[in-house]
Design a protein around this nucleic acid. Sequence first.
DNA 1: GAGGATACCTAG
DNA 2: TTAGCTAGGTATCCTC
Length: 860
Amino acid sequence: MIFQILDADYTYSDKKPVVRLYGRDGSGNSVCCMVHGFEPYFYAKAPPEMAGILQEKFKEHIKKIEPVLRFEPIGYFKNKISMLKITLFDPKGVPAIRDEVRKIVGEIYETDILFRNRYMVDNGLGGMGWANVESEGTLNDNEVLSAVKIISKNVVPVDILKNASLRHLAFDIECLPLNGAMPVPETSPIILMSLAFAPEFNGKKTIVLVGKNTTLEGDFESCGSEEGMLRRFFEIIKDFDPDILVGYNSNSFDIPYVVDRVNILNKKGARIDSIAGRDGRTLYYRKIGNVTRVSVMGRIAVDVLPLLRKEFSLKQYTLRNSAKELLGTEKLDIPILEMEDYWKDNGEKLSKFIEYARRDSELALLFLLKLRLIDKYIALARVSGTLLQDILDGGQTQMVENLILREYMKHDRVLPVRPTGEVSGERYDEGEELAGAEVLPPKKGLLENIVILDYKSLYPTIMMAHNLCYTTEVVGEMPEDVIKAPNGGIFVSRNIVKGIVPSILEDLLDRRQQTRAKMKTADEDEKGVLDATQLALKILLNSFYGYSGYTRARLYSLTLAGAVTSLGRENILHTKDLIENDIKEIILKGGKVTGKDDGIGGKHIGLSVVYGDTDSVFVHLLDKEITFDEAQLVGNSIANTVTESLVKPMELVFDSFAKRAIFLAKKRYALLVQEKTAEGLKEKIKVKGMETVRRDWCEITTKTIEKVLELVLKEAKVDDAVLLVKNTINAIKTIDANSAMFEGLILTRQYTKKVESYKNKQPHITVIEKLQKRGIISNVGDRIPFVILAGNAMFVERAEDPEYVKKKNLPIDVDYYINKQILPPVERILSDFGVTREMLRGMGERKVHTETKQKQLFEF
DNA sequence: GAGGATACCTAG
DNA sequence: TTAGCTAGGTATCCTC
């Protein structure tokens, strides 16, 4: 039988551990496969003669000890050293004895790799990977909810591109707020539960459960009571058997709320069997710090909200705003204060309430399916071998470590344990800091004809080119053939030994190229999977550098991370030098790049690097008339020449051509990019770092700056831009809370940490405090909208919730918007054209005429 | 009024 | 016991 692995855990049979793999097969059955015979183990740095002592001391836990030879985790070593591979009876034995073993032997390894992960890594299996099982019988375990239950000793990975069709259940709860206060499980019951299915469940796309009896008729299920509704909810989970449980903010709110309510009701004598996991366990959550973590064994709990936060840059992530921005859908709404009214009703109001609830679960499902939110994560799981839930909950660390562990094993290297809080603290305090990338100072102002070149996957290719790895880092005596990085790091060359990380990167890079090649001939279905796969490969390629400089990584190496960045800095400076002082100019003749200047004409194009950030160079072509084709020729020519001077696989490529560009500062610029499309040459504006792409400026600012940039870059109409700004300022002067333009004044900022931890007052924090007094709670991570009110108080004190301002018709500080939101950003752009603040305010004429200024700018 | 500290968000 | 990395600009408040 072949199935795709969704999740894994372990249980016991005859006191022996049994790994359970949960998944779905090609014909749509949910599968649980019990694997017997795998045993937990870890390593200890100790000579063979220690084996007897340890065996004797921990005989209840240790099954056997084998003397083995292994490499230590970090450093280039000629020889392996003596270690002990300690095999235990029970996975729980590892945490039970590891601290004491460490005290005896000094160093232990791989003691904190979860048993299910250890099993998968050792057997070449991984999250969302396909597995082939030879069934040795079926299991009669009523606890396990999977449709097919089999027993096996031998599970092998199978390479299948497509994914099994998964079953999705989206849900959302509505709680009854008491007197308009935020609902808490202690007092506020759940009154409605809405569910949406893909594929359909018994012919239904949605079901709304109502936690009371009602005379109302319609498309919903009356459950008599909250208890009855919750029972029905868990019954549906069991019957529909979803692989993916989706919600909006569900892992932080809905699921914990349901768990808490079930506990409260059961304490009062209710009998709600809240089984949700395929292992037969009840729904539960854990609180780690201020983050709740939900796991539903055998299924994937997907909270759409954090995924949207990662994927899309929005000003607000309320369900209402996300649905509007990303799906173009309106959310239905009922004012919190009227909810009780709607709920008590048995007519039209209740009916509305039900439809409002229904929409919320539908939206959660729509986000997941329409935006294909988890495709990327599924691909990441497959490529890295990590369980899908771990990737959704965690970050890059697990994926990188998973890949490294698999390769370390093959090379007889052991992995350290994850550092404790203290160790990672020490790593910070050692004084040395990781220096990052080089940013070349931009030539400020307006420029024409700029070719943008960038390095493909710079950091990974640096690691490959220079054999930078934990396993090549020189820690002892100096070998003959080494690479010295500018940060002082020394690594053995690949002639001596090829690093494990560079090998992994090469493999990822190869697979990415192959995947992209396959996309060209694939059908639409396959294309989607392949595209997600190539994206996942790119993400993983770029994760290794960050991981190496992460103080909490098992394999933290400031030397390695610093070698990467120092070589990166050296490289971009070298690239600039090469272009300006070596290549100097490109000669075009007959639509081609001419190698040598033969003295008989041709178009000589001088080159000047005007900006660069980390892995890019912006080359100003010193000629007024440049076509796109010429720019491309020049760009490719420079890229080729530079690439030839580099160690493979480092590669500089032509990225784009900007007809005009305006540079304000490092990381702040706008380009008028020319692109070739099927319909011919297209122009579009690309903005980086400026107010139009920042979420902490109001819409009036972003819109104004967008228009100013458009006028300046596309048409060089500086006077029109000035006029536009003047008009905007005049319009702002008359705005009040009831104006149509009011929405344009709303600023948002993220509430990033607990209120107490702020050393300085912040406008959005004062709003949070004001809202709290009105019974509205904000959560860390929320983006808080606010406007600035008129008055004599300090700026931060005058921030206020826009809804409240509208309701109370409070006066707006129009001067703030003119002087702080419009004038400074506009001035930064237009000052270079001789525009002053006074002119923008309407007090004075610009001295330098547009054309004159243009001429000056474009003289060489 | 300059300059530092804090906070936020973005580039890469 | 959550969490890839650094560089850099801008606004505001605080200290001198």
